[in-house]
Design a binder for these strands. Structure first.
Lengths: 183, 183
DNA sequence: CTCGTGAACTTGTCAGTGTCAAGATAGGCC
DNA sequence: GGCCTATCTTGACACTGACAAGTTCACGAG
């Protein structure tokens, strides 16, 4: 086994994110992660310090991906909202980590930057469709975030193979005055 | 130390809920809990089987309290929504456990009953203000649940002493056609 | 009263975890 | 060559959740 893995840091982030999507944050063990990557149990600590360091890196990566997805969806609030939900439901583990703030380093610069980027993109869509007030932006964020977390927690009853996109679009449209599409 | 504590089960649930409100679910250790209650490290297992049993009991208790709070708030959707948010923000630990389904026993009868009771009360308020469609009920639930979880995760920027109630009322009102109170 | 039966609780143990300290290795720069 | 620093390993510690087996106690039958 070579001493220098070469790309250990990236490997660990990818493996960890995949493991979290499969089995949840709490089931993620640093030691098992190290085993999967073929390194010793203390190798991850070198790159991330401790568990929160790893999760913070994953969360920052998650906000970057979310910002990209929101940007690609365009400026319409409903479409951005659907993109938000799609991201959350397709990568539930990453998404959960992003908002489990007690597990993260509070003032990590990379995390804060990524979070701000995603937030401002979502807010710009909301301002166009609803208004500029704080409550407008928060209402937009709340309804898509709430739907996403409820769906991921299994609280929303649905057919076994139902895809959340259509439902999310309907729900988000409820917030836009005069645009009660579907339903 | 008396062998028979007498009210160990209730004591453990109360202590655990308080500890969770203070330091989060993940920081809750069965052994520390037992220490606090003055019993041996294996005593909790007798009453709850394992960790998920304890958390399931706490979650069921939480849904009962939530249902009570929603019922007391009346049938108006906005007021019920504010009550939902108030419950979530005043007892954040309990609230978090209730939706961490991976930590709970999936088909516990007491949990299911309490959850259904709370759900139907919230839904009845939504139907009156919005409509009977699935998306109407989900939009109502999503916006208040989203606001509550975002607030609890610290994602919403606010003054250090700001109380979420007024903001929650404003946000919830955004969903009701023609009732854009505040903002 | 005594006795035994079962619930409530304890003691002991196990594999597993996160974190820390100290040692080993190797690539790059003089 | 020789050193230096980042990278990774080895070893240890205190802690955890879960399990098995033993101990104590309340209570009802006889």
């Amino acid at each position: 086994m070579a001493y220098h893995h070469g790309r250990l840091r990236e490997t660990l982030i990818d493996e960890a994110a995949a493991a979290i999507d499969e089995r949840g944050v709490d089931a993620l063990s640093l030691r098992e992660l190290a085993r999967r990557a073929g390194v010793s149990h203390a190798a991850p600590a070198h790159h991330f310090g401790d568990r929160s360091g790893l999760l913070t890196a994953i969360a920052a990566d998650g906000f970057e991906r979310l910002a990209d997805a929101l940007g690609a969806a365009g400026t319409d609030f409903v479409e951005a909202g659907v993109a938000y939900v799609r991201f959350a439901t397709e990568e539930p583990g990453r998404f959960a980590v992003m908002f489990r703030t007690e597990l993260l380093r509070p003032d990590d610069p990379a995390l804060e930057a990524a979070r701000d980027r995603a937030g401002s993109i979502l807010a710009s869509g909301a301002v166009g469709a609803l208004g500029e007030a704080r409550a407008d932006r928060l209402a937009a964020w709340s309804i898509v975030h709430g739907f996403a977390t409820l769906w991921n927690s299994g609280a929303i009853e649905s057919a076994p193979d139902e895809h959340p996109d259509a439902l999310a679009r309907e729900v988000a449209a409820r917030l836009v005055p005069g645009a009660r599409a579907g339903g």
